[in-house]
């Protein structure tokens, strides 16, 4: 299983992704789709679904082309005269897994006039309730800064439970706290009872969170 999500360092913003995509095969289509969404936001439902089959398939700056292209359309949707963040709610509701992934990955890069979080945060919660490792991983990217500590810890624990590499978690070492350590200890004890191990990255995290005494015992 792989839980790769776009977002290499340094992360490209949507303006850079857009410029790169417009210069490639499918660029003309994307430009027309963008204009269509700007003029008629309802058109996004069909166009958003079509993106991956309209663009050249190779990735751009670590983003799958379809995800990057969809991010461009989302930006157009948010800034269209009749668009706005509420449009995202409907789009996500009827999105397939690939479309949901694109929305989650794009969230941290989308234009935000202060209204996006109210719409975006429930989408993260929705993604964290799924058992789709791609969506869970994407929900723990940079936009997870908006997640409260309880939901964030549950998300990290869910990664360990599902075998998602902890490398997908944004600001892990910064946000990991004693409460997360308690939860990881609990999972480690259960795994021990079952004769199974924690993934190595979870063991390393637990060690880093434990005091010097525990670290020596390990």
């Amino acid at each position: 299983m792989s839980a790769t999500v776009p977002g290499p360092e340094p992360r490209w913003g949507i303006a850079e992704l857009r410029a790169a995509l417009l210069a490639r095969d499918g660029g003309d289509w994307l430009r027309r789709a963008e204009a269509e969404v700007n003029n008629h936001p309802d058109a996004v439902a069909r166009l958003f679904a079509e993106v991956p089959r309209r663009l050249a398939p190779h990735p751009v700056a670590g983003w799958p082309a379809g995800v990057a292209g969809r991010a461009v359309l989302l930006a157009a949707l948010l800034t269209a005269p009749a668009g706005g963040p509420d449009r995202l709610v409907d789009l996500y509701r009827y999105a397939d897994s690939g479309e949901k992934l694109a929305i989650l990955c794009a969230l941290p890069e989308l234009p935000d006039r202060g209204e996006l979080t109210a719409v975006g945060l429930p989408l993260l919660h929705d993604a964290l309730r799924t058992n789709d490792i791609r969506l869970v991983a994407a929900a723990l990217g940079p936009y997870a800064r908006h997640l409260g500590p309880e939901a964030w810890r549950q998300g990290v624990l869910k990664c360990v439970f599902m075998g998602i590499p902890l490398a997908v978690v944004d600001r892990l070492s910064e946000r990991a706290d004693a409460e997360l350590a308690v939860m990881l200890h609990g999972l480690a004890a259960e795994r021990l009872a079952a004769g199974r191990d924690l993934p190595a990255d979870a063991v390393a995290l637990l060690r880093s969170l434990s005091g010097p005494t525990t670290a020596r015992e390990n």
């Binding site: 549950q154 869910k158 439970f161 939860m183 609990g186």
Partner: peptide, 14 residues
């Protein structure tokens, strides 16, 4: 009626 209570996968003991 009786009740069937699911316990969580994460943080199960607490």
């Amino acid at each position: 009626l009786p009740a069937l209570v699911h316990t969580p996968h994460r943080d199960k003991k607490r």
